[in-house]
Write a protein that binds this DNA or RNA. Structure first.
Lengths: 191, 191
DNA sequence: CGCGACGTTGATTTGCCTCAACGATTGTGG
DNA sequence: CCACAATCGTTGAGGCAAATCAACGTCGCG
């Protein structure tokens, strides 16, 4: 929990009351590998801040294939933001990849925080701006890079993550098959 | 300009002073087809709200190919958000596709607005949330849909735009070549 | 041990790219 | 008003990167 408070304090000054409020709407929870934090189809009233471990959000297409939208490691937020911001049922599943500890926020209560403590607005605005930037970069990478190049960018962006998450999840994030990723990695290792 | 003011008023209540401030930092401008609003490499201190017409942002890869990140039509915002939010030189170019009228904002002055008129925060937060949602959807589409399906989603999302923007720009947004799009459209028309 | 999960490799297919040529349309200068 | 070039979309031929289908090796675990 300290992690998050410190991150916020780096960005804005936090009153004691506001800090108390955060503690009142947040709950530290642990999940083990394979557990589902958000299930496709359900109403999304939670968002998670990762203390340690790794999680991912993904959708399942009409052929049953999974496509990873996001990985989350320490200090990242994860949820089904499409569902949460649009107030619609989840189209994504959020799954625990390795044993993890997260801070779970009730989304409704979190939305209240801006009314009670407007000082959070700049913090959230900056978080959203960073999120937009990373999504723009991801789209540009997808448009202009080859599978190998995207893989290289990935392992640079998520160092060490490959040791913890299976390759077929990484493949599904990069938009290729597990087999193609295997070949790409073999090719890369040769050089 | 009225468009934008009304949009804001739909979302938040706007004091007379705040409305005056908006007018003071915004300038309505017209650009003709082909004009460049933001040039790759330059410092980005502008963001645009579209009154009418159409624009796009794109990057140029190492082989000289263009990749369209975003189209903007009436009531949309466009800029190089990567550069603007990260305070770095533009990696994108923003170009006028058809003769257009936009409201140009100075990015620094716009950033000030939140200090002087905190009531703007919720408006901007919602704008950013919608932006994140649309980017998430775009990434999911790119991961799971075929070229034809992506094209269908595109013309649903931007109705009428195909009449105004050349097909090779649409192709570069979808992540395929102009020729492939041509074949996809021929195939679609047959059925 | 035997099973399931995961990664790799091979053979074949396929969707899209590349290169190239060719109409149709539009705009421009003589 | 026409000749011409430029722009844009289409179509064909061939090639390539990645998908698909399938088999197999390895590792960890009940």
């Amino acid at each position: 929990m300290k992690n998050l408070i410190n991150r916020i304090k780096n960005s804005i000054s936090l009153s004691t009351e506001a800090e108390k409020y955060i503690y009142s709407i947040a709950e530290e929870k642990s999940f083990s590998k394979g557990e589902i934090l958000i299930q496709e189809g359900q109403t999304v009233n939670k968002t998670f801040f990762v203390i340690h471990g790794s999680l991912r959000s993904f959708c399942v297409d009409k052929e049953g294939k999974e496509h990873t939208l996001q990985f989350a490691i320490q200090d990242w937020w994860i949820s089904d933001f499409i569902a949460m911001y649009n107030h619609e049922p989840a189209s994504l599943t959020v799954e625990c990849i390795t044993d993890s500890t997260v801070i779970e926020f009730n989304a409704q209560m979190l939305a209240q925080i801006y009314l009670q403590f407007p000082e959070f607005e700049p913090f959230q605005r900056k978080t959203l701006e960073r999120h937009v930037v990373s999504l723009h970069k991801r789209i540009l990478n997808q448009l202009q890079l080859t599978a190998l190049e995207r893989y290289n960018v990935f392992i640079e962006q998520y160092p060490n993550i490959e040791q913890h998450v299976p390759n077929y999840h990484i493949a599904s994030y990069l938009g290729i098959t597990q087999q193609s990723l295997s070949r790409v990695r073999a090719e890369k290792a040769k050089k």
